[in-house]
Computed example of a mutant assay.
Amino acid sequence: SVFRSNKQIYVQLIDDLAGKTLCGASSKGIEEGTKCEIAAKVGEEIAKKAIAAGISEVVFDRNGYLFHGRVKSLADAARNGGLKF
């Protein structure tokens, strides 16, 4: 699940059956780069956390945001990090 505000972007992996968040990542603390570059770093971070937790396949919920810009950068980086959508 992805949430983006004007300044930050957040992503979390949720187990729908159990209703629990498994892991998450955000752009808080990342200050260098454009918004799309920061979103890509968040995508890389969530991919690393997911692989460490034994998760390799996910369903990408963009929460109604258009699939371009920061949302697309995050998704592409997560795919490159090893997650399968």
Rank of each mutant, 00 (worst) to 15 (best):
S1K: 11
V2Q: 01
F3V: 11
S5V: 00
Q8I: 12
Y10I: 04
L13Q: 10
L13N: 09
L13W: 10
L13Y: 09
D15Q: 09
D16P: 07
D16Y: 04
L17R: 14
L17Q: 13
A18P: 00
G19A: 05
L22W: 08
A25D: 03
S26W: 02
S27L: 05
K28G: 12
G29V: 03
I30F: 11
E31I: 14
G33P: 04
T34W: 12
T34L: 13
T34M: 12
K35V: 04
C36V: 14
I38K: 05
A39Y: 08
A40P: 01
V42Q: 04
V42W: 05
V42N: 06
G43S: 00
I46K: 00
A47P: 00
K48P: 01
K48E: 09
K49H: 06
A52T: 08
A52Q: 10
G54W: 09
E57A: 15
V58A: 02
V58I: 15
V59P: 08
K72Q: 13
K72W: 08
K72D: 10
K72L: 14
L74T: 00
L74I: 04
L74N: 02
A75V: 12
D76N: 13
A77C: 02
A77N: 04
A78L: 09
G81D: 04
G81L: 02
